[in-house]
């Protein structure tokens, strides 16, 4: 355990959070492909997609407002909110859904037996289920990221905030005896976003960009009234 002693002297834990600026989001979906590529998300195919089973850890929800000709489309990227008080966690009978010390809402694939209560109880409908074993036409599977598990039939999955990147960043920082620098670790979606609508960082660091942006008076949480304490702060789109 000696290497854990080399954690930053201040001993503060990390608290990973995201900010999504709806005034910047253009619905380009670069984040969606980035997420698929990074996290070995299956290609569901037309049939499964038609059955409503296409797996997306991040999706762009579009809401229409008004009537023609004064109609507006609003985009909202929705991914796991990594709730501080997550409704999916207590309902899992086998502890497959649990909270990590640095604020992530984790899903233990090996433990999951597929009762799917977490999926029902998630008010954001971000949990995705593997209804069948995944399949990649050869040689598409060559692309799979070796740092991320391929999920088998019968288990629940969802956004991890690219936990494999966070771990790698933390290990690197530990080796060098420092905290993870702001912007050093970002999930794939944040990395790809052309308009920088997505920001990611440590909320326990008051100087991080994510902390500063989250303090914006445009900030709100999705379904805040449920008291789930999401780790994602949305910034309102201006009219």
């Amino acid at each position: 355990m000696s290497e854990h002693k080399e954690e930053p002297q201040d001993g503060r834990p990390y608290k990973w959070e995201m900010v999504i600026d709806l005034d910047r989001c253009t619905g380009c979906e670069a984040c969606v492909v980035a997420c698929h590529a990074e996290n070995n998300i299956r290609i569901s195919g037309e049939q499964e997609a038609a059955d409503g089973r296409a797996i997306n850890w991040i999706r762009i929800e579009r809401y229409w407002e008004g009537e023609y000709p004064n109609v507006k489309a609003r985009f909202m990227p929705v991914l796991c909110q990594h709730c501080g008080n997550a409704p999916c966690e207590p309902v899992c009978p086998v502890y497959a859904s649990y909270h990590t010390p640095d604020g992530l809402n984790a899903q233990v694939y090996n433990r999951c037996i597929g009762v799917r209560y977490c999926g029902n109880n998630c008010p954001y409908t971000v949990r995705q289920f593997n209804w069948f074993d995944p399949h990649w036409d050869a040689p598409l599977a060559e692309q799979l990221n070796p740092d991320v598990t391929v999920r088998q039939n019968g288990i629940m999955e969802k956004c991890t905030f690219c936990v494999q990147r966070i771990r790698q960043g933390k290990e690197q920082a530990e080796k060098e005896g420092r905290r993870v620098r702001d912007g050093e670790v970002v999930p794939a979606c944040v990395q790809s976003c052309p308009t920088s609508a997505l920001l990611f960082g440590d909320r326990n660091d008051p100087t991080s960009r994510v902390s500063q942006s989250a303090a914006s008076d445009r900030g709100f949480h999705l379904l805040e009234e449920l008291g789930t304490h999401p780790a994602i702060t949305y910034l309102k789109r201006l009219p």
């Binding site: 969606v32 492909v33 590529a37 070796p146 794939a188 990395q191 052309p194």
Partner: peptide, 29 residues
């Protein structure tokens, strides 16, 4: 090849990349 990402040193796209660019990996495989 595992993933295509934006080159953060490139002046044009500064580390960002669109959906099509990232999906180019499936052109290879």
């Amino acid at each position: 090849a595992k993933k295509i990402e934006g080159n953060s040193e490139h002046p044009l796209n500064q580390g960002k990349l669109c959906a099509k660019g990232q999906a180019a990996l499936q052109g290879l495989y």
